[in-house]
Design a binder for these strands. Structure first.
Lengths: 241, 241
DNA sequence: CAGAAAAACTTGTTTAAACAACTTGCGAAA
DNA sequence: TTTCGCAAGTTGTTTAAACAAGTTTTTCTG
């Protein structure tokens, strides 16, 4: 449920691109025409188009226009520049998600954990290991650390449905930013036990630190992905800066 | 050499964050104060801050302010959301880059190549294989395909210095957008021959399609990275949309 | 003193206008 | 006919203003 004008226009243009109303390589209507069509100001149009640019749907060219560069083949299970839970991502792609908790404990961050995760030494944490299944295939092994003060009363039941739903709708905490780093790492015994890795001896690893609206990091997660089912998309632009 | 006001302000604020003039978790001056300091309009300030947000330096909170969330440990060799050549990236990180061309040929795209790269079947292409060294370590094996019509007269010498420099400054073509996909793939014989992979049997692979200002894809590249030296950073935000 | 209401301050959205920079095409001049 | 220059159309940058929405502080009321 988008709430702003530019967000509505973004959605509408995105739909028209995805349904092929604008063809690949075709120029979109000019800002002037879009202003008339949507009956809004130029800034609002430009903001909608700016979001289409960052999401890789169009490219703007000064003096020329805005070109549709969307190709439907590039659909991908992982959203770019957007925080999304496993469940949300799966449902968006029409898959059947399932999550199993294989370990859940409370612990206090020692020096080692603190250095790895970025939490302060001495922090009270929940630590859990979860396996994510998509259409009954084990694809992801997650190591989650949550700050107990901010995410209290975490249970196995919550962890198997949706922690993000619990955080946002029950605890009413708002999630803002997440820093993610993508690497490739050797497999561990745990990986081997729970994921079917075949010949691969390494995994695609996404570590992320997530912050709430008070600027406090409340989550550190390492997501270890089965390589043959992992792909991550990005749209880059040439900036001089 | 930034040319716009918001870009100058972005740079200045970024410097102040990186040098610690604003501390981690500290709130930046309010928009009102920044307007007075830089003597500009609110929109210009907001644009500079918007870029800091997408680059992961700050997080904005309605009603509260703008918080510095930059941590110097996260420095990384690969730029986010920015097209950058290997040479540019290396120099920016103070490393000594070297590039060796191990294969260079012309070819015509058959059905197979066309499907993989996205070029039209029958396109005249340059195909080259290059190894990128950083401080004398072989880190990346590149497979590059360039559209011969748009990148003519490609030589070994150009390919060993900087193709992007040749494209932008000699051919005067402007590079706009690049779509990148990250995956993990099994190693091939060529990978094994030119990169020191140790125990790893797979690599971090970045495939990218790059477009010029006419919306034409002129480059398809597959970059195969030695896993232990690869890392890629991303900043995500929670969007409702 | 405690709590509620109001004020002040923050960022978020939208409109309007002007000028700059770049591209294309038309028409006039050579 | 060819070429140059200009006009028209496009996106890019910047300013100004108003209101909305969220947070914090102050003030007032009980």
């Amino acid at each position: 449920m988008p709430k702003s004008r530019y967000s509505d226009i973004y959605q509408d243009l995105k739909n028209k691109i995805e349904t092929g109303e604008y063809e690949f390589q075709e120029l979109l209507p000019s800002e002037h025409q879009l202003i008339e069509h949507y009956d809004c100001s130029r800034n609002t149009i430009r903001r909608a188009i700016g979001n289409l640019v960052t999401d890789g749907y169009v490219q703007t060219m000064q003096g020329k226009g805005v070109r549709n560069i969307y190709q439907p083949t590039q659909q991908n299970s992982f959203a770019i520049g957007n925080i999304e839970s496993f469940r949300e991502s799966a449902l968006r792609n029409g898959k059947k998600p399932k999550t199993r908790v294989i370990y859940l404990t409370e612990l206090v961050a020692d020096k080692n954990i603190a250095r790895r995760t970025g939490f302060e030494p001495g922090s009270n944490l929940y630590y859990l290991q979860r396996v994510h299944y998509l259409d009954n295939k084990a694809l992801i092994l997650n190591h989650n650390y949550f700050l107990k003060d901010l995410v209290p009363n975490l249970t196995k039941e919550i962890a198997e449905s949706s922690i993000y739903d619990y955080i946002e709708n029950t605890l009413n905490m708002s999630i803002i930013t997440s820093k993610r780093v993508f690497t490739v790492e050797k497999m561990t015994e745990i990986d081997e036990k729970y994921l079917e890795l075949g010949d691969y001896n390494c995994l695609a690893v996404v570590t992320s630190q997530t912050y709430n609206s008070d600027g406090i990091m409340f989550e550190y997660t390492q997501s270890r992905h089965r390589p043959d089912y992992f792909s991550f998309q990005d749209n880059a632009t040439r900036r001089v800066r």
